[in-house]
Design a protein around this nucleic acid. Structure first.
Lengths: 147, 147
DNA sequence: ATTACTAGTTGAGGGGGTATACTATTTTGG
DNA sequence: CCAAAATAGTATACCCCCTCAACTAGTAAT
């Protein structure tokens, strides 16, 4: 544990724990106000799996099933997802509606534009590669691969 | 906007937006359950400024003053901060109690131990320097310097 | 069939946030 | 000098997030 680890710890706290939220806040777009980050993540998960159960969403988002339940209710009211019944009548498969599909595409574009501006204004071309290397590494460390 | 920006955007979302929360969750220590990240940040801010007003905390944490007000109430109940009256009777200066001071020291140690383990197990010595470079950069980009 | 398990919902309680309205105090300025 | 304006912080209503425990309904297993 040298001084560099200490600095890394401090940076981790400042940048990851407290900084991320600010970046999210400063993305100025109506959809970012209408949908919470958790709702957006859920939409993206449903989109990537096409059809998914509540139980699997709880695993993927790493929260209690009741948190998922209320989130689903809100997204159903917004008409961005819909339910498909299976033979097992306990179970409900969720999928995106056309509106939901359109919304995640727009959200992706908005974030991409924002980050592109942020990165291109502040990071030199040579640094982008380093940025990617570190973030790929972080992704594996955080063990988000399965998500 | 080449493919690298696209990858950066995806990584940003996965690692920063959704990944950080998991790391925080996986720090297994009673204090991390007893105090929310926002409460911890507030304690650290009070600690670093010695004495601070509610209004300044609202600026530093970038939230509405009423959010600060309720947070202060909770921290007062936990006896980790105390109020000092100034000549301006509208204003209340906040400072850490001994208990509060002890708690941020313990929290720092806990997070340091956790991250040290995480980083040393997953990042080679040569990569640490890269990690630091990128994170210093991110810190300035996120404009957290004043905090 | 009867019991045991599983999927998902509900409600209480506590964390986060905003905006508005309000109290109390200080400043300002005619 | 005193009334009006500005300021610090609180309270309330309403929203999101979360957990845990109790519950319904449907399926599986003995």
């Amino acid at each position: 544990m040298d001084g560099r680890i200490k600095e890394a710890v401090d940076l981790f706290q400042e940048v990851l724990v407290y900084g991320t939220e600010r970046v999210i806040k400063s993305v100025d777009h109506p959809l970012w106000k209408e949908y919470s980050p958790e709702q957006i993540q859920m939409l993206k998960l449903i989109g990537s799996e096409k059809q998914i159960t509540s139980a699997r969403l709880a695993v993927l988002q790493a929260v209690h099933k009741s948190a998922i339940s209320s989130r689903i209710k809100k997204l159903l009211q917004k008409d961005v997802i819909q339910v498909v019944q299976t033979t097992d009548k306990r179970e409900k498969l969720l999928e995106l509606t056309d509106k939901g599909q359109a919304i995640i595409e727009e959200l992706d574009q908005v974030l991409a534009d924002y980050l592109e501006k942020l990165l291109s204004e502040n990071i030199a071309d040579e640094e982008i590669e380093q940025f990617l290397t570190i973030f790929r590494k972080l992704k594996t460390i955080i063990k988000m691969d399965g998500v």
